[in-house]
Simulated scan of single mutants.
Amino acid sequence: MRRFVTWLAAALISFSSPVLADDHPVVVELYTSQGCSSCPPADAYLSTLAGREDVIALALHVDYWDYIGWKDDFADPKFTKRQKAYAMAANRRSVYTPQMIVNGAEHVIGNHPVDVEELIAKHAKMPDRVSLALSKRGGVLSISAHADRVMPTPLVVHLVRYEPMQKVKIRGGENAGRDLIYSNIVTEWNRLGDWDTRSPLNLQAQVRGDDPVVVILQAPGPGPIVAASRLR
């Protein structure tokens, strides 16, 4: 009987413990395309990450597969440029889809969830170096941050907006005939400026609409993401 009670208590803990929001969520960028036949499993996996509080999952659709028969209407040349910049920073000669980049530092094939989960866990355990807070009143976003020590270079302040979900019927190309669901589709990615961490950051930006707002503080390069926060 005692063994049963012990097992029951452990089971209740495992099934009832909520997933708590992390103080420093891990950013996962998925580089994907509606025209890529290997991407739907990665898109589906990103949808599971999109529901987590400890992860900021972002789908950046690239345009270099548009020529094979289907134009991705979410694609933006800026996202292709960002992915290529990551490749150059890592001394890699090419880019591919689906690719996930974890906290700006780890490159991994996007349809390998086990590898991605390991990297998320690794970065979630890293200590905070920067505290970042967001608030929004009307159409004004207020951003504040301070660093526990001065960073070697100023951090880039990025403002990101995304659409939480959209279903698309693919009528051409490698995925022709499929109805695919996409999550956290990045619609805007703007560089607000650079932050010299020798003094606190206090910045305001205009935002429109109800789509979620993400602010990312990242080493130049693009390099590692030092802090990120989101308002939904």
Rank of each mutant, 00 (worst) to 15 (best):
E29N: 11
K136A: 05
I13E: 01
A133M: 02
Y96R: 00
D128K: 11
K84I: 08
Y162C: 11
D23T: 14
F79N: 11
F79C: 10
K125V: 02
I120G: 07
G138H: 01
P98V: 11
I216K: 06
A21H: 03
Y64H: 09
M1P: 12
L8S: 08
V28C: 04
R52F: 07
T6H: 11
H107P: 03
G193R: 14
R208V: 15
Q218E: 15
L180R: 02
N190Y: 07
Q218C: 05
K81R: 13
A228M: 03
L180K: 05
D128F: 00
W65R: 03
V28L: 04
R137Y: 03
K122L: 14
N184G: 04
V102E: 00
V28T: 08
G173C: 00
L141H: 07
T97E: 08
P113T: 01
V28K: 06
A50L: 09
R82P: 00
A219P: 02
L8C: 11
M126V: 06
D210Y: 13
A21N: 04
I216R: 05
A90C: 08
N175V: 00
L141I: 09
L8E: 01
L132V: 03
G223E: 06
R92L: 14
T153K: 11
R129T: 10
T6N: 12
A124Y: 01
R137D: 13
G139Y: 00
F74G: 06
Y67D: 00
Q166Y: 09
A11T: 14
T80C: 08
V28S: 08
K167P: 02
A121R: 12
L30Y: 07
K122S: 10
D72F: 10
H61P: 10
A89M: 09
A50H: 08
V95P: 06
S47W: 06
P113W: 03
V207T: 15
T153S: 11
H107V: 13
T97F: 02
V168E: 08
H61Q: 12
T153P: 06
I143Q: 02
A85S: 12
